[in-house]
Nucleic acid binder design. Structure first.
Lengths: 220, 220
DNA sequence: TATTTAAACGACACAATGTTGATAATTCAA
DNA sequence: TTGAATTATCAACATTGTGTCGTTTAAATA
C-alpha cells in the first residue's frame, strides 16, 4: 500500500475525515463509492475539476447529496482515492520486479521504466483527464512547456546535422525541461540549499551526461 | 511578450473577458490591479488558492467587491497576470543571453541553466506559493515524489560505495523522476505515439546517459 | 428472520457569486 | 483650472452550492 498522502494531507484536516474500515465492506458501500468515482471521472471529461460541484457528482450518480458526505469529505478526497487504487497496482508490479535479484542493475536495462510506461498506457483515460485540468497544474505545464520550447530551439540550432541524435528532438526537449523543472521544485521546496550556480552546474551535468555511475558507461 | 495562455485559455471563455486596452492606463486602474495582485499573493501564503474567495481578496485589498469584476472575471485570471509579468522577465533575459553568439554551445557551459535558477531564486516567494498549492498540482507532485523515492532507493542499494557520485543522490533522484514524468506527460498528451517499450528505452537512455551529442562527450 | 447498517428525503442556515443602478471621487485633457 | 469622462463605492438582489440535521425507507448480513 502506498501512501499518496505523504506529501500533502491538508485534505484530511479540512472538515471531517471519514475512516475507511479495514473490515469487509457492505455491498452498498462498494457500489456507492464505485458510482461516485465513475460519475466524477465522467464529469472531469466535460469540465474542470474546480468547476465540478458535489451536487453535480451526486446528481450524475443518481443518489442523494447527503450520501456523498457519508463517504468523503471533499471531492478531492474522492479523486485521490480513485488515483490511489490504480497507482497501487503499478507500485506492486514494480516492487515485485525489483525484488527479484536476477533483474540486474537498473542501468543495464529499463525494466522499471517499461513497467511505468505500460501502467500509464493501461490507464491513459484517467491520467489524460487529470493532466488536462487547468487549476494550479496548468501553471506547471506552462512552465515545463516553455523550458521545453527553448530546449527544442536550441537543439535545432546548435546541433550539427551529422550529429542529430536517434531520439526525436521533441522528446529530448521534454527530458531537458522535466529534469530541470524537477530540480527547481526540489530546490524551492528545500529553501534553496545550494547556490544558483551550483544548481545550474549539477542540472547541466545530469541533463547532458546523465546520472549513470562511471563503471556503467560504455566508454569508461 | 510570452503568451502563457497558449496552453490553456478556457479562463477567457469562462464568464466575461475583460479586455486590457493597449492605451495608457488610468492611474486608478494601475493602483487597483496592483493592490489586488498583492492581496492575492498575501492570501496564498495563508491558505490554498481554491479556498480563497473573491470576497477575501477584495476585503484584504480594502476595496469593494464589485471593483474586482471591473478588472478580472475570475481569481485565476488575476493570478495568471501576476505570473506572466514575472515570467516575462526571465524569458527576456534568456532571449538576450542566447542572442549573443559568443556564449558558445549550450553543452559547453550552463549559462542558460544559471539564468533560470537565478530567476527562480529572485522570485522564490511567488514560486513557493504556487508549488505548495494543492489542487491538481498536488497530484503531479505526488507522482514525481513517488518516482523519485524509488529512484533514491535504487541508487542507494545498487551503486557500490566507491562509485557514489559527486552529485547528491537526493538531487539525482529528482532528475530521474522529473525527466520520466515529463516524458510521460508528453506521451499521454500526444496520444501514445510510441510503444511503452520504445518510450522506456529512450527514457532510460536519456536519464542515464544524457542528451549531449557524441562529439560533446569527454570520452568520445 | 431479526438486526444492523446504509441510503433517501426534505429542510435548514450560511456563505459566495455575479450583477445592478445610483452616487461619490479621481483623473485626464483642453 | 475647469468640465467631461472615467472609475470606485455602496447597498441590495436572486441564485447557487455547502454542510449538517432528524426521520423514514430499503437493503445486507449473520
Amino acid at each position: 500500500m502506498v501512501n499518496l498522502d505523504s506529501v500533502n494531507d491538508k485534505q484530511h484536516m479540512s472538515k471531517k475525515s471519514i475512516q475507511t474500515e479495514p473490515r469487509k465492506l457492505d455491498r452498498r458501500v462498494v457500489r456507492t463509492r464505485k458510482m461516485l468515482a465513475a460519475a466524477l471521472l465522467e464529469l472531469m471529461q466535460e469540465k474542470n475539476f474546480d468547476e465540478i460541484t458535489i451536487t453535480d457528482i451526486t446528481e450524475r450518480a443518481d443518489m442523494n447529496r447527503a450520501t456523498f458526505y457519508l463517504h468523503y469529505g471533499t471531492k478531492e478526497e474522492l479523486l485521490y482515492k480513485s488515483l490511489e487504487e490504480r497507482f497501487d497496482k503499478l507500485v506492486q508490479s514494480i516492487e515485485k520486479s525489483m525484488a527479484t535479484p536476477e533483474s540486474g542493475y537498473i542501468w543495464e536495462e529499463s525494466t522499471y521504466d517499461r513497467l511505468v510506461f505500460e501502467h500509464v498506457a493501461e490507464n491513459v483515460d484517467l491520467y489524460k483527464v487529470i493532466l488536462d485540468q487547468n487549476g494550479m497544474g496548468a501553471i506547471i505545464h506552462r512552465i515545463i512547456d516553455y523550458i521545453a520550447a527553448v530546449a527544442y530551439r536550441t537543439a535545432i540550432e546548435q546541433v550539427p546535422d551529422e550529429f542529430k541524435p536517434q531520439i526525436p528532438i521533441e522528446i529530448i526537449s521534454r527530458h531537458v525541461a522535466g529534469s530541470m523543472f524537477s530540480l527547481l521544485v526540489w530546490w524551492i521546496r528545500n529553501d534553496l540549499p545550494y547556490s544558483p550556480t551550483e544548481m545550474a552546474r549539477m542540472c547541466h551535468q545530469l541533463v547532458s551526461f546523465g546520472c549513470a555511475p562511471e563503471f556503467m558507461r560504455p566508454n569508461a
